[in-house]
Write a protein that binds this DNA or RNA. Structure first.
Lengths: 132, 132
DNA sequence: GACGCTCTACGACAGATGTAGTATCTTCTC
DNA sequence: GAGAAGATACTACATCTGTCGTAGAGCGTC
């Protein structure tokens, strides 16, 4: 049941972001994106990342013309979920509230975000009553 | 200015928790706590963790009687802040909102927590208007 | 003062991650 | 079809983290 946590290192995550933000790409495309973001890694380093990520099952590749095109098989949301769960478990035994409160108290949000937030808070009530 | 991120592994974090929750302790005390929590590590493993944590500057020790007593030098809050910042930076380029929304949508909270949440949301307005 | 208990110091080792070099293979261009 | 350009495969290596084992130092008890 409990899906295995997706553990990705910082570099691997940077590569995933390139795929999430740019869609399916070749190694070279990903490398260029990383360079644009200030991460000047070698072509082969990117290839290593992609290969490892494929082994982990989080990206897939297809041969197209001369080069392979890689694409993400997991969403940014699922990685976010995984990271948050790990954080919350490791720091607060699974209690999400402290983390949530920390975010609200220490981060800044736009009025739009606050509005959205408020809306969600309302729905929370019903969920709180909701058994299970 | 920007304080360097505090990067701790899972085992190191488990040791920090023992110190946060039990106050200053000896290696053996920490080990016992970890065992209680189901992490059956060897005495020397705990010692290694504590030593490394001290090298990182996040715990301190004092010789008392026969054994050293270790204590945390950083708070759980600061580690939480650090972890969240890293997460938010790596996944959303620093935008905290997606993470916040994820938490609200996917985690459960008690009515008390929701109430507290609501109260905080109110204060948010003023902060949002507040320049800088 | 020898014995045993407990503690610390040090070293080791495997797996994960970040990084890249070299070798080989494909393909495009004259 | 030979050479250049670009792609992938394979290997390597350092660092960090989790995990211990062993050796030696300090102290309490006969």
């Amino acid at each position: 049941m409990a899906k295995k946590p997706i553990e990705l290192g910082e570099g691997e995550l940077a590569v995933m972001r390139a795929l999430w933000e740019g869609g399916p790409q070749t190694v070279r495309d990903v490398m260029n994106r990383l360079h644009e973001r200030g991460r000047n890694v070698a072509y082969t380093t990117v290839l290593t990342f992609l290969t490892r990520l494929e082994q982990k099952g989080v990206v897939a590749s297809d041969k197209r013309d001369t080069a392979y095109v890689y694409r993400a098989r997991i969403s940014r949301q699922s990685v976010t979920a995984s990271r948050i769960k790990t954080l919350v478990d490791q720091l607060y035994d699974g209690a999400a509230a402290p983390v949530l409160l920390h975010l609200i108290e220490h981060e800044r949000f736009t009025p739009q975000e606050i509005a959205q937030l408020r809306k969600l808070i309302q729905d929370l009530d019903s969920r709180a009553e909701d058994p299970r």
